[in-house]
Structures are given as structure tokens and as C-alpha cells.
Design a protein around this nucleic acid. Sequence first.
RNA 1: GGGGCAGUAGGGUAGCCAGGUUAUCCUCGUGGCUUUGGGAGCCAUGGACCCCAGUUCGAAUCUGGGCUGCCCCA
Length: 487
Amino acid sequence: MQSKTENKTLLQKADNFSEWYNEILKRAEILDVRYPVKGVYTWYPYGYKLRNLTYSILKALMDREHEEVLFPLLIPKDELMKEKEHIKGFEDEVFWVTKGGSTDLDIPLALRPTSETAIYPVFKVWIRSHRDLPIRIYQVVNAFRYETKHTRPLIRLREITSFKEAHTAHASRADAEKQIKTAIATYQEFFDLLAVPYIITRRPNWDKFPGSEYSIAFDTLMPDGKTMQIATCHLLGESFARTFDIKYEDDDGALKFVNQTCYGISERCIAAVIALHGDDHGLVLPPEVAPIQVVIVPIVFSSKGKSEAVEKACSEVYDGLKEAGIRAFLDDSDERPGAKYYRWEMKGVPLRIEIGPRDLSSNSCVFVRRTDFQRIPVPLSDVVPEVNRAIKEIQELIHELAKETFFANIHISKCAIEDKEGMDELRRTAEHNIVSLFLCEDERCGADLEQRIGVTVLGVAINENEGDGKCIICSRKARRVYVARAY
RNA sequence: GGGGCAGUAGGGUAGCCAGGUUAUCCUCGUGGCUUUGGGAGCCAUGGACCCCAGUUCGAAUCUGGGCUGCCCCA
């Protein structure tokens, strides 16, 4: 599996993002797309390590106030169909299990497209009293959606392999709303650790999660200028509680419906890490999630009899890093150093340490950072603290670069519909940028705008207190919304 | 949702129209020797016609269906 570098040519990220993305997944051994079912893919060991490190961060954040659970993959049809609005949003993309062997099942079973209808009947049984509340649970599971549009690894899948979904139930709406705020803050922490910049918006009513009162979404900007939704938080209110009859007895003895929320993140977060930070040499992984944070490359001359000293120095450095809890790898394979450099650059290893006879003569080694290929001599005695410093710096550098690009691509528009030229320019800008403009809440205005300039309305930015303006379409009172071409 | 194109070894290609033991390249695999401060060289060698059905003496090639992928339009 660990093939030699497959291709010498550099990849052109800026020219053809789509091709770059597919090549990177293959060459860096993240995902193998050669599986004969549409929209489902195989994680390579390296990719799966990246996935697990990313999700261990997410789980640690969730574990602060949630408990991890595991609900079944199969959902009986009658449960799935209970919530009318909810099922309307999903029915065209549900996979069905209709047979057991050669026998038709009495009740067809759905492969979960999401787990509300699996979890909430159980909530009904679990919740009796206000003392049972709040309930906060999450699970990391696979989910299935029969996507009819063209599928894309990690981004548009028929099997979502890494769906982290949280579900909470509360005694009051205020508690539920508070939970949404906490969830948003947690997700902010998460994406900050991944060095992935985002905007947070409240989705328009016509685009909210089916069955919810409102949906808050995180979007990032991909290198091809389209936004990608990377997280959502939904206030469900009492709608599912009424459907699934989830009631609790309050301290005054009255039976009341619970208030619910749910929020989720999928492997799109990994697609974002890959897409945003990578360059023409391959992946650039933030040290926080890099399966290998430091690779040590020995420079060995077998003919000169110096290899033993080099090998010894490399193992000592390796042992020191391991002991310090750093994810290090010593590449003592038979390949030439140059081949190793290219390999580990492709795989996004943040820091490389080279140790050769020349370095040993001065008791030092050379650090090379993946971000800018800067070469820094470091005394062997300082390796561990210097590595710690370097990976911290690299993490910050990656984040700064990503934010810089992101915010440079958000444009404020003051355009009005009568301004023909302005609208043309807006259309061009929106091809590769996020645009902020005034739009009212009327679905017809949204649809009109989407059609005119070829964008999706992402929603009103939360935490932004800019005053009202005039809707770009109808001139009625409106708030600032973000629009962009979206994945 | 509509239309078009494609699928040949790990990755690329040619062959298909006009059916006859396929072939070729590589930064692929394997073995060997020489190498090793930015993708090593030589020699030897390995491996494929997407699946199912049909036509035919004979199918990578023709026909039909399926699966998978890509592109364009909405």
C-alpha cells in the first residue's frame, strides 16, 4: 500500500481545484475512491488516522457535557414517517431495506439518513420527570443518503461515515436556546483547532432543517470560490416532542413537552482541512490533527561509514520526541532522502527534521517547516522544546493564512436591483466570493436573487448587529445576509 | 431533472469504425547489483480488455441491459 510517490509533477491547486482535490486524496492516501458503489469510499490507514485524530478532538469537546451513545442504523418505516415535515425533507433520499433473505419485510427498514426518528422514540421512554432533564447525548455513526446529484469524496456522499450528531432535550425553550448557543461556541472551538475559518448564519426559513424551528449553519469557503456547509445546529422546539409524545412531569405535577435541539458535523470538516490548507506540494495538516507531526529523515552514506552515528542520533531524537508526547516518525526506509521529502510533504507532515553527518559535526539538525520550507538549524540538545515551539507556530501560521484568504473573499455589496451594471458585477463577484447584501425574509425575493445572480442564500449572520437596510429585490426592510455559490 | 462522453495491468495510452493468440509507456509491483544532503541507475521479471446477456466458428471490438466515472445545461 505504501507505494513510492506515484507522480512527480506538482499539482495545480489554483487552476483546477477539483482535479487537485481528487489527486490529493489518492496520493496522500486519505481515501481510495475505487469502490464499485456510487458515493461510497474507503478510508486508507493514513486518512483514517487523520479522521480519528480530528474526531477525538471533537469527541473531547462533546464529552464536556454530553454522553456518547450508539443508536441503531435501522429505522422502521412507520417511525421515520411520523414527522411530516421532517420526512418531506428526506423521503427522496432514503435507502430502504425491504427484504430479509428472500422474504419481504412487513415493515420496511430505512438506513438512517439522520437519527431523530431512531432516537426520539427512545427519549419518550427515557424521559419521565424534569429530573431526567436535560438530556445531552451524541454519537458518531455512518448515515446513508441516496444522493442523485454527483457525489464527491468526503463532501457529497451516499454513506456518510463520520456523522457526529448530538441530540438534547430540555424542560424549557430557553434552556434549548441556551444549548444552541453552547453548541455554536463548541463548534467554533473545534473549527479554530482545525484552523478552518467560517461564517455562522441563521439559514433562511425555506432552507432550515426539516422539522426544526430554525437552523444555524457554519460555512467555509473552498478554493474554487464555493462555500461548503460544515456544521449545523437546529432548534427543534416542541415539534418532534409532540410527534413522538416526549413529555415530562414538571415540579408542579403538570405534563409538558420537552424542548429539543440537535446539531451535527460530518467528514466535511476533514474535506475543509484538506482543501483549505493544502498547496501544490500536497496536504498541509495543522499539527493538532496531523497523524505524524514530525518526520525524521536520516541522511545516510553507507559507503562512508558514518551511518551508525547518524542512525544513533536519529533514534535518540525520535525517542525524545515520543517521550514528550509528540507524534513523531523516523523514516529509516531505503529510499533516498529526496524521495522521502516529497512523500511526507504530500502527506502534509508539518515539520521535518533532517540529520546527516554534516549536522552531527556541529551537534545539530535541520528543521524544515511544511508551510514555507524554511530551513532552521537546531542544536540536538534543544530538539524537544524547539519542536514544541515550531508546531505551535506552524499551527498558528496555517490558521492565519486560512483566515486571511477567507476574509479577503467576503465582499460587502450596496447594490440595488435597478442598477444593471452593479448586478452584473455582483454576479461576477459571487462566482468566487461570499457576498454580503440586504435581503428581506420573503422566500420569493430569495429565489429571485438566487436565480438572478446564481447563488444560494446562506442566511443572516448571527452576532452581527448592523442595522436594517433595504432588500436588494423589493426594497422593503431587510437585514444583511450572506450569499455565495454553494456546494 | 435533461443531454453528451467514457470504462483496457497500480497509473497512463493505442487497438474498436472494418471481429481472428493484443500492444505500448510509466514516476506501478517483484528480484538482483550499484547508490543515498531534493523524486537514483542498470538488468531481469510480473500484471489488464467493467459486469451480464445476445450475435458469431470466434468478441476488448458489434447489439442490448446494468454498474461506475467524467463533462455540459437546468
